[in-house]
Design a binder for these strands. Structure first.
Lengths: 149, 149
DNA sequence: TCCTAAATAAGAATAATTACTATTTACCAC
DNA sequence: GTGGTAAATAGTAATTATTCTTATTTAGGA
């Protein structure tokens, strides 16, 4: 369900953000794709109709869409690779603000399986559950985003 | 359970890789941490005892540890941020080789909950299950890693 | 002990993201 | 509708993570 320009305008305005045609075009490109596009993907798609579009506008618009709750970023730690030597089956509890990652051991989660239909197309090597939220330290500051480390 | 130098040496040698003191130090720094460290974190930790250590060596060692199956990278798309405007509850099926991400709808997965103990420390806003594997196109090429796009 | 292929270190190159600044534009008050 | 103002845009520069290149060193087998 694609939002109409008027619906999207309302969302923006409720947050005191301005609604622009670039923003609607970027929204449309994102919502019309099931490819989980990157910034570059969106930029080149929208650039076709807005030749002067800048990357900055794409980044900026995505931030706003996230703020509004209309889009989300599925790559939580894209800014830096993170490693783990713990090869025991486990899952993660991630603080959305400070990016701390806690380990989570849970048999039920270990045993999750894919539906047979999907299973036969993919060769599954594992799975991982990520719970997202705010740790005790960040809970009080949920709405104050943290700057780069 | 930290591997001894000799155990780790064996792992390296089985793959035709050389065992160096830098590699053991990096392994120790990684395995001794529950912080899911970044490359930079490991670099500065190990640099204390190996002042000439280079970033390259850290990257290189982490690649080898992944190859051996002793470490893993928890940030799957760290190279590029990826976005999604689908706010319906869903999960992901990720191809480890071509990085394609398919959506997965599954009520059982939607209903997962955290243990009460963990729940009271964190303020959970959601969760996501990621199945990892190889898509039908990449299945035959599982062992041929793909270069950067 | 010697040889050779692989690892290291140091620095340059690349790619994604963020910051900066002048110009333009949305939208509110009138 | 007009004008004022704060925010958005575009273009460019700066920053940061990662990869590449090359000369030197070293592990491990002969």
């Amino acid at each position: 369900m694609l939002l109409t320009p008027e619906q999207l305008r309302r969302h923006f305005q409720e947050r005191g953000l301005k609604f622009t045609s670039q923003r609607y075009a970027i929204y449309r490109a994102l919502a019309g794709s099931t490819e989980h596009p990157s910034v570059e993907d969106l930029y080149s798609t929208v650039k076709a109709s807005y030749p002067t579009l800048s990357m900055n506008t794409v980044y900026n618009t995505l931030e706003s869409l996230k703020e509004i709750g209309i889009a989300s970023e599925i790559s939580l730690w894209h800014d830096k690779a993170r490693f783990d030597a713990n090869q025991a089956s486990h899952h993660h509890l991630v603080c959305l603000r400070c990016k701390k990652i806690e380990d989570l051991y849970d048999d039920t989660l270990d045993r999750l399986a894919l539906s047979p239909k999907a299973k036969h197309r993919y060769r599954i090597t594992g799975h991982r559950v990520e719970f997202h939220g705010y740790c005790s330290r960040c809970k009080p500051k949920m709405n104050k985003p943290q700057k780069r480390r």
